[in-house]
Design a protein around this nucleic acid. Structure first.
Lengths: 228, 228
DNA sequence: ACGCTAAGGTGTACGGTGTACGCTGTCAAG
DNA sequence: CTTGACAGCGTACACCGTACACCTTAGCGT
């Protein structure tokens, strides 16, 4: 990040807007959201920015460095938990915020925690969550338990939901039929029962499961920690 | 799957062993486990099998089809829960088994639930888990809650653990120093405290967190379901 | 106003990828 | 012996990330 706050800043050259790491990252984010991270290639990205492919490398070390930047951009969207009020509320809100962000950027789910070079937004986020837990009365060991359980649950839910080929009850019948078609009828009785008697019922929405599990984890932590 | 049970089966032609979907899948699995899924290319796979790249396409529709096959191979390694005894024990064991399998094949974590064409092992596994829960007294809605919460937790834990650049307390100091190096000292006080006062303590092992969270979810489900 | 320097943008090229298409060689059934 | 199906192969194409040398331009000190 070398955005020097010099006089006016070199913004445009002639008619063309100057390239910058930020501009590249935002274009890449839009492309990833539109078609997944795999569709973001240096060449297509350059084309979208009306620039030669190699021009990008003046602002980004490699495609991997670009992905590092994208992940930190996504992290920056996650709301930081406050340290003022109730830890449970803070953790619930941060979980919901994280899930929202991951729904907007599903391609990021597997990457958020896996980059070897975490950016400032990433570190700041982890720092804030730990701070919120400690302020809520958790000792170090319990804070570690809590953070691990909460993060695992939220990322896991985002992951399993992303992958579900349906979301609302209307679409399920078709998808299920297609999935089970290659196999003999009655091969998977419990699965079939689950689909027809539960998932296909009107009003079913897998997303509703999130709140249930989150509350379950939060209640468990509260009891475990013997807080409040 | 067209393994016809004809006479002796065409196994070898001359000195070379005949290609087959199974042989391809096993070679690909070995390669993925060794270097990640990204290093499995049709060309390298063909080379390992001492065959021309295009020969693979007689047995596999595309690289994507190959990945579908790999995922089902991995699913087949996960132990099925029994329906006989205690549901809690069955679910604990299947969670531990799933985590073990994902540790052996970390490249599969993001794929297990995301393939549009689930294989027989996949469907069989889901069917067995639902059956075990129902046998344990869960009604349909509670079984859905339980499955969602448990799967989210286990996959999420596998995901967050995979990404952690360390595991045992000995390596943490170096990694942490490297990660925090680009930032001003004291920028992330809670994170720093967590690392030095907890993660760097002898005997720390992030994997230990798994059992804690799993028990937390299981206990929560038991209470929620008012079972037993 | 001028020229210098460094940084930004470009063109070409290399080695990698997945896979469409058409050919060849082998083997089993008729 | 003939025939046809099918396994494996060679070539080719479009795409990918990026190393390297080159040119253009902007902004500075003078």
């Amino acid at each position: 990040m070398e955005t020097h706050a010099a006089p006016a800043g070199p913004v445009a050259t002639g008619s063309r807007i100057r390239l910058s790491r930020e501009r590249i990252l935002h274009a890449a984010l839009a492309q990833a959201d539109a078609g997944g991270l795999a569709t973001v290639s240096m060449r297509k990205l350059a084309e979208a920015l009306e620039v030669a492919p190699m021009a990008l490398y003046r602002h980004v070390a490699s495609r991997d460095d670009l992905v590092d930047g994208l992940v930190d951009l996504v992290f920056a969207e996650v709301g930081l938990p406050g340290t003022g009020g109730d830890w449970k509320t803070a953790m619930r809100e941060r979980g919901e915020s994280l899930l929202d962000v991951l729904a907007r950027h599903p391609w990021a789910i597997g990457l958020m925690e896996s980059r070897r070079n975490p950016g400032p937004a990433n570190l700041r986020h982890h720092d804030a969550v730990l701070g919120s837990l400690r302020a809520g009365g958790f000792d170090m060991a319990m804070a570690a338990h809590a953070y691990s359980a909460l993060d695992a649950y939220v990322y896991g839910f985002a992951l399993t939901r992303m992958t579900l080929p349906f979301e609302r009850s209307e679409q399920i019948a078709d998808v299920a039929r297609e999935m089970l078609a290659p196999f003999p009828a009655g091969a998977y009785p419990h699965l079939a029962e689950f689909i027809t008697d539960h998932a296909m019922q009107p009003g079913y929405d897998y997303g509703d499961e999130f709140a249930y599990g989150l509350e379950l984890v939060l209640d468990g932590l509260e009891r475990s920690a013997a807080l409040r």
